[in-house]
Simulated assay, not measured.
Amino acid sequence: MKKNYTNKQMSFLRMLSVVMCLMLIVPAMAKAQGKTNFAGNWAFNESKSKLGDSGRRFGGGDFVVKQEANLLSVERSFNDQSFTSKYTLDGKESVNSFGRGESKSTAKWSDDGKSLTIVTKMNFNDMEIKSTQVWTLNDAKTLSIVSTRPNRDGGTVTTTSVYDKK
């Protein structure tokens, strides 16, 4: 038996189907936007950075970032040598070697996926040193990295290094 719908019923059914589609599409679009992509060639911008008394040795310098689904690779050059640090983006520990040993890091996304916090622990002269970096894109061409680490007096120092995308 064929059912005949009135114009009001048809309008209501159309409206209902549009609302249901939006309920499915909008969350999917939000999720598709995903996490911030830090990939690119980054140039240190000293005038926008706030390094305090720490000087450039704890911040600055140009670097290249490659980002895949679950891996962030950071390549820095210093005195004609290149160093690459790799961080898994799933919260699992990553181990990186450096001139005096190795560091262990965990990277964790913020709830909104807009910033990445990297906590690194390393041993130096039989003492564990813990540092934290929070990476955030201010816009598509500006990266800020806020670093917190211990200073020589037992307190902490926080710096902000700003980079421009080349």
Rank of each mutant, 00 (worst) to 15 (best):
N45L: 04
M15H: 13
T117R: 10
P150A: 12
G55V: 00
L89F: 05
G59R: 01
I129C: 07
V134C: 09
S85E: 13
T106N: 03
S105C: 01
K166G: 08
L22V: 10
N4G: 11
R14H: 00
E93H: 01
E68F: 04
F63I: 02
N70R: 06
G155H: 00
K66L: 06
K3W: 05
L116I: 13
L137M: 15
L24F: 14
R57Y: 06
N70H: 06
K3Q: 14
V64K: 09
K66C: 04
L13R: 12
S110H: 08
F83C: 03
K86P: 01
F44H: 07
F58H: 09
V65L: 05
V64P: 01
K2Y: 13
S54T: 10
F38D: 08
I145H: 07
K35M: 10
T159V: 12
S11P: 00
D111C: 05
F98Q: 01
G40L: 05
L71S: 10
Y87E: 08
S54K: 08
V119A: 09
L116P: 09
A107H: 02
W109R: 02
T136Y: 02
P27C: 10
G101S: 12
L137I: 10
P150R: 08
D139V: 11
D139N: 15
S11T: 12
T160K: 12
L22S: 13
G60F: 06
I145T: 08
I118K: 07
K165T: 04
G52M: 11
G34M: 10
S147F: 02
W42S: 04
S161P: 01
E128R: 02
K130S: 13
N41P: 00
N7G: 03
D164E: 11
G155E: 10
V134W: 09
T156G: 07
R14P: 00
M15T: 15
T120M: 06
N151P: 00
S97C: 03
Q9D: 14
N70D: 15
S97R: 01
D112G: 12
M10D: 08
S144V: 00
T120C: 05
L13S: 12
K114W: 11
M122R: 03
R14W: 04
D112S: 14
K141P: 01
M127Q: 15
R14V: 01
A32P: 00
A43G: 01
S147Q: 11
E128M: 09
I145K: 05
T6L: 10
F44E: 09
V64R: 06
V65K: 03
N125F: 07
W135K: 05
A140E: 15
N7S: 11
Q133M: 09
S110P: 04
K35Y: 06
N45S: 12
T132P: 06
L143P: 04
L89P: 02
R152D: 14
D164G: 02
V19P: 05
E102H: 03
K108D: 08
C21D: 12
E128D: 14
N7L: 11
E102G: 04
S144D: 13
K130H: 06
A30G: 13
G99D: 07
S49F: 09
